[in-house]
Design a protein around this nucleic acid. Structure first.
Length: 410
DNA sequence: TCTGGGGTCCTAGGACCC
DNA sequence: TCTGGGGTCCTAGGACCC
């Protein structure tokens, strides 16, 4: 498969992004301090979402339980997360990138690829990278590492080589010298499970993986195996696609609870809240969903999920809740407690083009549904104007009723 | 120390249709 | 009467990313 040649791609990674956003807002209190954005102050639990480099030097890292972080670093400044702040900063960061090229693909809230191919008038890639880095620092107070490569994979790997504030170029020719000595778990796409399987075949480094036969990997790991082998050779022909992120494939909401839930009546208010949040985000993006998935996590961290498809795509919290309750009910029989509940909407479509299937019951029922949707949209408008506390969601929803029986195969 | 929340993609098996 | 194979859709679960 020929790779598009001579592309120039940057990968920009804002260093410890969440913490940096807070430092930018309150430098007097936070600059130079060991600080971490973490968890849920109400539950006095949760994990570290982002740690400053001062905290990292003391052993604090992302995904670490807050209790352990405080044991390692008793003077850690713990900052509650503010996702509104992160979204706002992220939007400004991505807007800045688009001043350099129209081909910007956001990868996450704090990372993006920028395709500079054909933007030669801006100067060499290293000069552009330095300009972006300087402007991020000057205008948004965000430190960033930037990787330069001939494709997205090598740009991404390069940005990870020097943190914080590095600028690193990785060409195809550099792969054997710079990439192959790294642990295989450092390769994008290799997580703990794959690393363990690879270790069983004596694959420790990215070079070990590259030297393995692609047929061997494909036989054992399927498509994933072939992709890994290609990645280990530094090859990647995926385009930088600005449309990624514009059309989400799922919209979900989940919550870890302070106390396990065992029964439907325990779970109902939680599922109500989650369904409402998902529905509001669907409506805000003018999307409707056809499939609803409920996730339940038990105390041993085993997840189970149940999903079902609706006859009509919906953006209504009441529809999501009804389906979610029906899906969750069999598991909520009182025999197992669950620490996390989630509701996810998938098979998304454009709300403006959604056509409802006519049913045998056309008449009073759809009219009621239309009234309810109108009420939910009116509530969105009130919340936008007066804030989230202005509406009590339960008042908008019908009383509890028999769980719907999701359509099943067979 | 006790384990977040938002996503994407892949796989496997069964149903169903031709 | 018994036996096909391919394609697609749906669901459940797992792995990965930040």
């Amino acid at each position: 498969m020929p790779e598009p040649s001579e592309r120039t791609i940057l990968h920009v990674d804002a260093n410890c992004f969440f913490v940096s956003c807070h430092v930018a807002r309150d430098p007097a209190r936070l600059a130079g301090r060991p600080a971490a954005v973490a968890g849920d102050p109400e539950r006095r639990a949760g994990v570290v979402l982002s740690a400053s480099y001062e905290a990292r030097r003391l052993g604090v890292h992302g995904a670490m339980p807050l209790g352990e972080a405080l044991r390692l670093c008793p003077h850690l400044v713990v900052i509650p997360p503010d996702f509104g702040l992160y979204r706002e900063r992220s939007g400004r960061m991505h807007a800045l990138f688009r001043e350099f090229s129209p081909l910007v693909e956001p990868f996450s809230i704090d990372e993006a690829w920028i395709d500079l191919t054909g933007c030669g008038g801006l100067g060499p890639a290293g000069v552009v990278a330095r300009a972006i880095q300087r402007r991020l620092q000057a205008e948004l107070a965000l430190p960033a590492s930037i990787g330069i490569g001939p494709n997205k994979l090598l740009a991404k790997m390069a940005s990870g080589l020097r943190k914080p504030r590095g600028i690193t170029e990785l060409s195809r020719a550099d792969v054997p010298l710079l990439l192959w000595p790294l642990p295989v778990a450092d390769l994008f796409g290799v997580g703990p499970a794959l690393a363990a399987r690879l270790a069983a075949w004596n694959v420790r480094s990215i070079g070990d993986l590259a030297r393995l036969g692609p047929a061997f990997l494909e036989r054992r790991l399927g498509q994933t195996g072939r992709q890994l082998w290609v990645a280990a050779h530094g090859r990647d022909d995926a385009a930088v696609d600005p449309a990624v992120g514009e059309a989400p494939k799922s919209v979900g909401c989940s919550v870890t609870l302070g106390r396990d839930v065992w029964t439907c009546s325990d779970a109902r208010p939680v599922l109500l809240d989650l369904s409402e949040k998902v529905a509001r985000r669907l409506r805000a993006r003018r999307l409707v969903a056809t499939t609803v998935t409920v996730t339940l996590r038990d105390s041993t961290f085993r997840d189970r999920s149940r999903s079902a498809s609706l006859a009509d795509p919906t953006d209504s919290g009441a529809d999501l809740l009804r389906c979610a309750l029906g899906l969750a009910a069999p598991a909520l029989d009182g025999s197992t407690g669950y620490r996390l509940l989630g509701v996810t909407a998938t098979r998304l479509g454009d709300a403006d083009r959604a056509v409802r299937q006519p049913t045998l019951f056309d008449g009073a029922m759809p009219l009621a549904a239309e009234h309810r949707r109108a009420a939910e949209r009116a509530a969105d408008a009130v919340r936008d104007r007066f804030g989230d506390g202005a509406i009590v969601p339960a008042l908008l929803l019908p009383p509890p009723r028999r769980p719907a029986h999701p359509r099943r195969a067979g």
